[in-house]
């Protein structure tokens, strides 16, 4: 262990991270000019990486506000990972704190962060309707309730308070800086689910009920447990009114119907949608 070099590097790092840190005795103006280059490069590289990952968030906040938020993040949470890809971890929470009166900012930030992660998530082949049906054909009646679902790598969910799909599309339009944003109001809080279609991260906004079911299953709950939770959430009458066939995916409807609970029809619709979208990697009756 080279204790002297270790101390020297800790001191140098502290000077890079903090523009106001004192420089060692004996350093000249020339040394200070060199240190300023390292300080500026450090800050600029990290802010650029954040801007690249949170491109639409920056477009929504405006460049100055984004740069201030990014600098705040870099100062309060200096990176410790070897990969610059991790620099955005915790940034959505910083946005939520700094833009408390503008909930679109944190919503956009969360969406861009999970899409960024999904972009380089592990590769897997999604289960299509035929594949689902083939596995499900071997299920006995009780197997449906015991079924567990593995979502595709990188799939993630988070709550949203606005119509984030409309905002995403609006910010993706090139050109007109004076264009007015669309009405983003939603009647009730919702969820946004992100997954990857082949190599492209995509998302959909879903009801609170679907978000709750998705979260439960993602966390390891069985399909039966998710159906029971859904029944408690939406009420028996409403659950029964929604036919599984509504989803259009035969496998999902069948699964929902076989789940036994009345909420199963609704859950079946969700399941059909997830299969159709290519969000499911595997199902298991164990």
């Amino acid at each position: 262990m080279n204790a002297a070099l270790k101390q020297r590097q800790q001191d140098f790092m502290a000077q890079v991270l903090d523009d106001t840190a004192a420089l060692p005795t004996g350093w000249t103006a020339r040394h200070k000019a060199g240190m300023d280059i390292y300080r500026n490069a450090y800050r600029a590289r990290l802010v650029d990486a954040l801007r690249s990952t949170f491109e639409r968030t920056a477009r929504w906040t405006g460049e100055d506000a984004f740069r201030k938020a990014a600098a705040h993040h870099v100062i309060t949470r200096p990176p410790n990972s070897w990969t610059l890809d991790d620099i955005g971890a915790g940034f959505p929470e910083v946005l939520e704190e700094l833009f408390a009166n503008d909930p679109e900012v944190a919503g956009l930030g969360r969406l861009e962060w999970v899409m960024h992660r999904a972009f380089v998530a592990a590769d897997a082949v999604p289960l299509n309707a035929a594949g689902f049906g083939e596995i499900a054909a071997s299920f006995a009646e009780q197997d449906w309730a015991a079924m567990r679902i593995t979502f595709m790598p990188g799939t993630a969910i988070f709550p949203v308070l606005r119509n984030i799909g409309k905002l995403w599309a609006f910010l993706g339009e090139p050109g007109d800086e004076d264009a007015r944003p669309p009405d983003l109001a939603v009647e009730t809080p919702q969820h946004c689910i992100v997954w990857r279609e082949e190599f492209k991260p995509v998302f959909m906004q879903v009801t609170q009920a679907e978000g709750a079911v998705f979260s439960l299953i993602s966390g390891g709950a069985t399909y039966g447990q998710a159906c029971e939770a859904l029944l408690a959430l939406i009420g028996e009458e409403h659950a029964g009114a929604k036919a599984g066939a509504e989803a259009g995916a035969e496998a999902g409807a069948k699964a929902g119907a076989k789940a036994g609970a009345k909420a199963g029809a609704e859950a079946g619709a969700m399941l059909g949608r997830w299969v159709h979208n290519g969000m499911i990697a595997a199902i298991d009756k164990a």
Binding site: M13, Y38, Y42, P79
Partner: peptide, 10 residues
């Protein structure tokens, strides 16, 4: 260092 990564070639 053990605590921070500068992502720069120091």
């Amino acid at each position: 260092t053990s605590a921070h990564n500068s992502h720069d070639l120091l």
